[in-house]
């Protein structure tokens, strides 16, 4: 795949409000690799929360407000598998039969998930400057099943010389976030995130990474509530930047 000179970053609403550092780290990492990163200031949200909650009209209106933000033909990099999946796979459905359909399909075709971009578009070759550590990777279900990038985060972590990647129990299982699912069904979602947090703790990892802000907020929010362990997760972008000395 050709190496683009410029990309757009669609930061996502969760990163924007709750973990902006992860977004900045993604930008910095891409810039250190010589990519110009454009962050359209009028961006807000892909519409996913309303879409998956049975409110496609509201989702479409929000999505429509984002359509003018990517005029260049550069890739649109998204540091979240589920928002990436929304843009790439659900936007064309959401706009089926709408006047914007053609434009939406063209935009969707340019959407690339962050870890996929780093690995497959840039062939990122890091020099790991961090101390030896053990890391578990949680891949979001959307990254795994919608974006088909379940191995990209592994591959990136595996390129770090001093990092041992550990596998956790039921690694491919959902962490229980699911957007409004974790609010509408807190008992079930709670059981799921409890199991995920325990599996990560039992893996012997010192920290864990994920390329999805929703999962990260879910698992870290649970770990912080339990206070039983110092284990916390980081966004993949932050971890990779930190390991390669780019985070001052």
């Amino acid at each position: 795949m050709s190496r683009p000179s410029d990309v757009y970053l669609f930061g996502t609403c969760l990163v924007d409000l709750f973990m902006p550092d992860a977004g900045m780290d993604a930008i910095t990492l891409l810039e250190t690799l010589g990519i110009r990163v454009h962050f359209p200031q009028a961006q807000s949200c892909c519409g996913q929360p309303a879409y998956t909650s049975g409110h496609p009209r509201e989702a479409r209106d929000v999505a429509r407000s984002q359509l003018d933000l990517f005029p260049g033909d550069w890739p649109i990099v998204v540091p979240s598998g589920s928002c990436g999946g929304m843009l790439k796979h659900h936007w064309p459905t959401l706009f089926a039969g709408e006047p914007e359909q053609e434009r939406v399909v063209a935009i969707a075709a340019r959407v690339v998930e962050f870890s996929d971009f780093l690995l497959n578009h840039l062939d990122w070759q890091p020099v790991d400057t961090g101390p030896a550590t053990r890391v578990a990777v949680h891949t979001s279900c959307s990254a795994r099943r919608e974006m088909n990038v379940h191995t990209t985060s592994w591959a990136l972590v595996d390129r770090l010389a001093n990092v041992t990647r550990v596998v956790h129990d039921h690694e491919s299982e959902c962490c229980g976030f699911g957007g409004t699912f974790s609010i509408k069904h807190p008992d079930i979602a709670g059981a799921m995130v409890t199991d995920k947090a325990r599996a990560l703790e039992d893996s012997g990892a010192i920290e864990f990474v994920t390329a999805d802000a929703g999962c990260l907020m879910n698992i870290n929010g649970k770990l912080a509530l339990d206070k039983a362990t110092p284990l916390r997760g980081k966004h993949l972008a932050s971890f990779l930047l930190e390991r390669t000395g780019g985070k001052s």
Binding site: G11, V15, D16, L17, F18, M19, P20, D21, G23, M24, I27, F39, Q41, Q43, S182, I183, K184, P186, D187, A189, G190, V193, T194, M217, N218, G221, K222, A224, L225
Partner: peptide
């Protein structure tokens, strides 16, 4: 926070949004 804080610490916004951090930089 309805439903959420049954299993998590509250969702708390960061001191600044990504939009702001990008503008400042």
């Amino acid at each position: 926070q309805a439903g959420w804080t049954q299993n998590h610490v509250p969702m708390t916004p960061a001191p600044k949004t990504l939009h702001e951090l990008v503008r400042e930089r």
